[in-house]
Nucleic acid binder design. Structure first.
Length: 666
DNA sequence: TGTTTCACTTAGGAGTCCCCCT
DNA sequence: AGGGGGACTCCTAAGTGAAACA
């Protein structure tokens, strides 16, 4: 633990030095400080300082805000700290402990002070969706076979529908009904009286037009594509970053969601409703008082500008479908997200230390004379054993009908006294988050089985299985068992511990790199299966599998050829006994080896892909597996980290890459 | 105490990019 | 050089859980 703290501290000494000293936001004061720093520094110090500045520049864009920030960075580090910083650079390792002692570090402070998330926050606000671009006059809309010119507002909404025409969404009754209802609200009274039946609306010209547009986009010249790319890059540089406590951080979703038709997942009662356009007047901006506040577009106003440093979001607005709040927040690579992520895994590791005690307790509770305690204990058993989600209550009719553990209904379970030669089997069949089906047959202990029978007694299929339980009760109980324990920690814990165990078990140090990576993917897959992370099989799956098989066959033939050639070269060498033919044998041998390796690689690839058909590895990799496990594994077995984590993932897990040594165990 | 609100994490699909093979 | 297909990025919906509120 100490080691971890030192590791993360060292990172933050480098990255966030001096942030605590920025109490005054007075620019004049800052400038003064800068002067002091300049005058007070020795030449050597100045040089180092320059170097640091250079680094920061390279890191920042030339953009105004951040050009400014480079300065602020310098200014903000008061003279004393600047001097210490300079002195530190070369001997960081030695003075770290004492440094830690003296300096209140932000990550530390955050955890111990009352919910303060930052002290300085500056950004440029969101990027709004482009305004509606009306259709050219030759693209027509027909009602009941007759051309009809729509008002701009009604036309825009119609284009949303036209763009989705190929999607099966638009055939669903609920979708059409919701769309039609909301569309009418946008029509002029004249349009309203004319258009009375969605089935008589002909959007096909619009649809064709958009298809042609997308074709045209694909067919654009390289130069035009390059131009668009550059423009996007410019917007990214301008709006995609913010300054949070002296650091330029990437913003995750700085573009406001464009208007369109709501596409819920699964059987969503609100599918097809109009998601309205967000205007500056809908936007709440959050930034620090002493920052340069973002400017609303000319002629508009923000709904509000606030300075709440107890939250991490930069911008928020209320969405009209569910009435929920949407946020703009930082990228996963940011300090604020990274620290939270790290914390999450540390909580899961604390659970590891007491999970046996908790298990003993809930097993004991299966015998409790109180119904609520038995229910709690059985639910917890499911959450622990099957990695089910907590299952908060949901408002009926507002969302798709999905459940988690606490909201399971009688109809989602079937009890089998005996099944496939196993006793006490529970068959689960329900829709979970995102309407992904959870189907599983699980042998359980007799006591659990008997309890389930009891809970289901005299109930209708649509009744709650755990009628004396909800997530709030469960989490309150968990909180008493361990500080910071909630239902979701079990998912994190079980996912990570599974990866660790699987890796320990199935990695063969004799294997070559591709085979080891196959082992890794298999371990990852075990977790994905546990967490029920599914995906739709890729549309091209069968075909790409076939292609791969063709390649494998070709490679096999190639191998046979190479072997034949080797054999004849050997025979030749036996006869001739000269250097040249010996060399020929050697090179043929190498060829065979190379081809064997290539074949093996292909076969591994095929296995991996086949096993992965319906399983999504990404979600667990990104959200449930302590990255230190994977990094330690890479280090231990000499696997380049890039084979496991791509660039984005490495950025997100920078904290872990910094701190995990090869002997790290979850 | 139950309900609502808010903040933040987790999730799969769509869209885009880019690399490798032909 | 073109294009097929996998990898990656973007998008935003859908969860969790704590705090505020009634």
């Amino acid at each position: 633990m100490d080691q971890i703290i030192v590791a993360i501290r060292s990172r933050h000494v480098l990255l966030h030095f001096g942030s605590e000293h920025r109490d005054s936001s007075d620019k004049k004061h800052r400038d003064k400080e800068r002067l002091k720093l300049k005058d007070g520094s020795s030449d050597k110090q100045k040089d180092k300082h320059k170097e640091k500045k250079k680094e920061e520049r390279a890191d920042s864009s030339s953009f105004d805000l951040f050009g400014d920030m480079v300065q602020i960075n310098n200014v903000l580090v008061p003279a004393l700290c600047g001097a210490i910083l300079v002195a530190c650079v070369g001997m960081l390792v030695y003075i770290l402990p004492s440094l830690c002692f003296f300096m209140p570090f932000r990550w530390e402070e955050e955890r111990y002070t009352d919910g303060v998330k930052w002290k300085f926050l500056e950004h440029k606000g969101p990027v709004f969706a482009p305004p509606y671009d009306p259709l050219p006059s030759n693209v027509k809309f027909y009602y009941d076979g007759k051309h009809m010119k729509l008002s701009s507002t009604a036309e825009e909404v119609a284009t949303f529908f036209a763009k989705m025409l190929d999607h099966e969404y638009t055939t669903k009754e609920v979708f059409r009904k919701n769309f039609y209802k909301d569309w009418r609200k946008e029509m002029t009274s004249e349009e309203k009286s004319k258009i009375t039946d969605l089935n008589k609306c002909d959007f096909s010209e619009m649809s064709e037009y958009f298809k042609a547009q997308s074709e045209a986009r694909k067919a654009m010249t390289k130069e035009d594509k390059q131009k668009i790319k550059e423009e996007n890059e410019r917007i990214l540089q301008e709006y995609g970053f913010c300054i949070m406590d002296n650091h330029k951080e990437r913003i995750a979703n700085f573009r406001i969601e464009p208007p369109g038709l709501f596409r819920g997942r699964g059987d969503h009662p609100k599918m097809g409703m109009l998601k309205r356009r967000i205007r500056p007047e809908d936007i709440i901006v959050n930034c620090s008082k002493d920052s340069k506040h973002p400017k609303p577009p000319p002629g508009t106003k923000w709904k509000e500008v606030r300075h709440d440093n107890k939250v991490t979001w930069l911008v928020s607005w209320t969405e009209n479908i569910q009435g929920s709040i949407k946020y703009i927040m930082l990228n996963p690579s940011s300090r604020i997200k990274g620290e939270k992520d790290w914390q999450k895994y540390e909580t899961a590791r604390r659970l590891k230390k007491c999970v046996e005690r908790i298990r003993a307790q809930y097993r004991d509770d299966w015998k409790s004379k109180e119904m609520r305690i038995r229910q709690r204990a059985v639910a917890l058993y499911f959450i622990d054993k099957l990695a089910l989600r907590a299952g908060n209550e949901k408002e009926e009719g507002e969302t798709a009908d999905t459940v988690g553990c606490c909201s399971l209904r009688v109809e989602h379970l079937t009890l089998h006294q005996e099944m496939d030669g196993q006793e006490y089997v529970v068959e689960f069949d329900f829709l979970g988050k995102d309407s992904i089906r959870y189907y599983n047959k699980v042998p359980v202990e007799k006591r659990v089985f008997k309890n389930l029978q009891l809970f289901m007694e005299d109930k209708e299929p649509e009744d709650d299985l755990f009628d004396r339980l909800n997530t709030s009760i469960l989490n309150k109980h968990l909180q008493e068992l361990m500080d910071g324990l909630t239902a979701k920690v079990f998912r994190t814990y079980n996912a990570s511990i599974t990866l660790q165990q699987q890796l320990n078990e199935i990695t063969n140090s004799e294997d070559n790199v591709p085979a080891k990576i196959l082992s890794y993917n298999r371990a990852n897959r075990a977790v994905a299966i546990l967490c029920n992370h599914q995906r739709a099989p890729p549309k091209t799956f069968e075909k790409s599998m076939q292609n791969l098989q063709t390649k494998i066959d070709a490679k096999k033939e190639q191998l046979a050829d190479a072997k034949r050639e080797l054999k004849s070269a050997k025979a030749d060498a036996k006869v001739r006994r000269d250097e040249k033919s010996k060399k020929a044998v050697e090179s043929k041998k190498k060829a065979v080896q190379r081809i064997e390796e290539q074949l093996m690689k292909l076969e591994v690839q095929a296995t991996d892909r086949e096993e992965n058909k319906q399983i999504a590895l990404g979600t667990s990799k990104l959200n449930y597996l302590d990255p230190r496990i994977s990094i330690a594994w890479c280090k231990k077995f000499g696997i380049p980290i890039e084979k496991i984590y791509n660039k984005t993932q490495r950025e997100k897990f920078a904290w872990a890459i910094d701190m995990a040594e090869k002997d790290f165990q979850f």
